[in-house]
Amino acid sequence: MTAHFVQFPCLVDNYGVLVHDSATGATASIDAPDAEAVLAALDAQGWTLTDILVTHHHADHVQGIRGLKARFPDVRVVAPAKEAAKIGGVDLTVNELDTVRVGELAAKVIETPGHTAGHIVYWFEAQDTLFAGDTLFALGCGRVLETPLDTMYDSLMKLTHLPLETNIYAGHEYTVSNARFALTVDPTNVVLKERAAQVEALRAEGKPTLPTTLAIELATNPFLRADNPDVQTAVGMAGADPAAVFADLRERKNKA
């Protein structure tokens, strides 16, 4: 059983990803940001689309579903049960700890409300790979739009319990701006400074900054470090509840 992951840019700053099971030929698109971009990636690989795994209902993650179904009428659309009515055309709804199969590959569903109230992510445990949608970004996290801020913090903390070697794919290329913000709230972090320089260099060459890993996010992503004394001191909240520090960080990023 061999899994292949193909990431490609689409729209303005979105990423699409194809997940392919070589044993069965099954192929899933993580979200459907843009039908033409997904179809081009499929054609380049010679793969047939069997599944679309939706993380949340926002248009830049689902607007390509209709176009993909026009090309592949039998494709199965999997989506969070709590948001299926906002997405439409859903064939299978899933909840916390459900398992979704793409051929012989298995993804565990983890509910991560915050960016949207019903947001989910897909963890392919055997492949050490997480598709985080707009919950967790490289050096950042999604805007909290449909829940209290502490709900998003709880969702992020759930993800910190995954294995450190977990590879993380996110829905957007926001890493440069995230790195610049992170340096303002974690200015003494040497690892962060080195990573920020690497990120700037990658983007200058037109290269992606994703996937990332949980280990590097725990070391450099301020939204996962709200309990860190250096971060707390930098924002004037030494000894505060980490959830409150997270809320302050998110509000600062909103205004950045």
Rank of each mutant, 00 (worst) to 15 (best):
R250N: 01
D34E: 12
R101Q: 07
Y174I: 11
W123T: 08
L214W: 01
A32G: 02
A243I: 06
T135E: 05
P148A: 10
Y153D: 04
E173Q: 10
C141T: 01
G46R: 09
F246Q: 05
G25N: 09
H57T: 15
D34R: 08
L218Q: 07
N178V: 11
L18F: 09
A244H: 09
A26R: 02
T50P: 03
A215G: 06
V19W: 00
H56Y: 01
A240P: 04
A40D: 15
L11H: 10
F131V: 14
E146V: 11
L139W: 07
T160G: 00
V102K: 10
I30F: 03
T184F: 01
D13K: 13
F5M: 08
K82D: 07
G133I: 06
T99H: 03
D21A: 07
L139Q: 12
P148I: 02
A243W: 13
H56K: 01
T24Y: 14
K158H: 00
Y174M: 14
L136A: 06
A244I: 08
E200S: 11
I120F: 00
E165V: 15
E194F: 05
A117L: 15
A35V: 15
P229Q: 00
H115N: 09
E194D: 13
A256T: 14
G239L: 00
E251C: 13
T233G: 05
H161D: 06
E111P: 12
E36M: 14
L162P: 02
I87S: 10
G171S: 00
L18E: 02
D91T: 05
T48Q: 15
T184Y: 06
V191C: 11
Y15N: 09
K82G: 07
I30D: 08
V199L: 07
T135S: 05
Q232C: 04
E96R: 01
D31I: 15
R250G: 01
R66A: 14
N228R: 13
T50N: 13
I87G: 02
G46M: 08
K193I: 03
D186V: 02
T116Q: 04
A138M: 15
G206Q: 01
V121M: 04
N95K: 12
S22N: 14
G25R: 01
E125K: 15
L68D: 10
G46C: 02
T24V: 04
T213L: 14
F137V: 00
L224W: 08
V6N: 05
Y15H: 03
N14D: 14
V77T: 06
L11D: 00
V19K: 08
A28H: 08
L162D: 13
V109S: 03
A201C: 07
D150A: 00
G89Q: 00
L156F: 02
L97C: 06
M157V: 01
I52K: 11
P80C: 03
A244M: 11
L202Y: 07
F124Q: 11
A85N: 08
P113C: 07
T129F: 11
I216T: 06
A107F: 09
S22H: 10
T209S: 02
T175A: 14
A234G: 02
E83F: 00
G206N: 04
A35I: 02
V94N: 07
A81Y: 12
A234I: 05
V38P: 01
V19Y: 11
R101H: 13
L249F: 05
